[in-house]
Computed example of a mutant assay.
Amino acid sequence: MLRTRLLWFTAGFSVTAAVISQFVWRDLWTDRYALTADMKQKLDALETRVSNLESGSSPKLESSQG
């Protein structure tokens, strides 16, 4: 009887640990994906702003040098 209880406790504990670790893994994976997407969006916006600044300042630099 004691062995049966120990077996069921071990099986239940293992299944519970597997389910919890699966939830934690999914949560971490979702956070990682969201962080990557957010950084890509911000870097694209920054690249666009820098490109706009460079294209806007090019004629001024050429006229001041000439």
Rank of each mutant, 00 (worst) to 15 (best):
L6T: 00
L7H: 07
L7E: 06
F9C: 08
T10E: 11
T10F: 08
A11F: 05
A11C: 05
A11T: 04
A11E: 04
A11W: 01
G12R: 00
G12H: 00
G12T: 01
G12V: 01
S14K: 03
S14W: 02
V15Q: 05
V15I: 05
T16K: 09
T16E: 12
A17F: 01
A18V: 02
A18W: 00
V19K: 03
V19A: 04
V19S: 01
I20T: 04
S21K: 04
S21D: 03
S21V: 03
S21H: 05
Q22S: 15
Q22K: 14
Q22V: 13
Q22Y: 10
F23K: 06
F23E: 07
W25Q: 15
W25Y: 14
R26T: 14
R26D: 12
D27V: 12
L28T: 15
L28Y: 10
W29C: 14
T30L: 12
T30F: 07
D31F: 10
D31E: 14
D31R: 13
D31I: 13
R32N: 11
R32G: 12
Y33C: 14
A34L: 09
A34W: 07
L35N: 05
T36G: 12
T36I: 14
A37F: 04
A37V: 06
A37P: 01
D38Q: 06
D38G: 06
M39Y: 13
M39P: 10
M39V: 14
K40F: 11
K40W: 09
Q41F: 12
Q41G: 10
Q41A: 12
Q41N: 11
K42S: 02
K42T: 02
L43F: 08
L43I: 10
L43V: 11
D44K: 08
A45L: 05
A45F: 04
L46Q: 04
L46E: 03
E47T: 15
T48Y: 08
T48F: 09
T48V: 14
T48L: 13
T48A: 13
R49K: 08
V50R: 00
V50G: 01
S51L: 08
S51E: 09
S51A: 09
S51F: 03
N52P: 06
L53Q: 00
E54G: 06
E54L: 07
E54N: 07
S55W: 06
S55T: 06
G56H: 00
G56L: 05
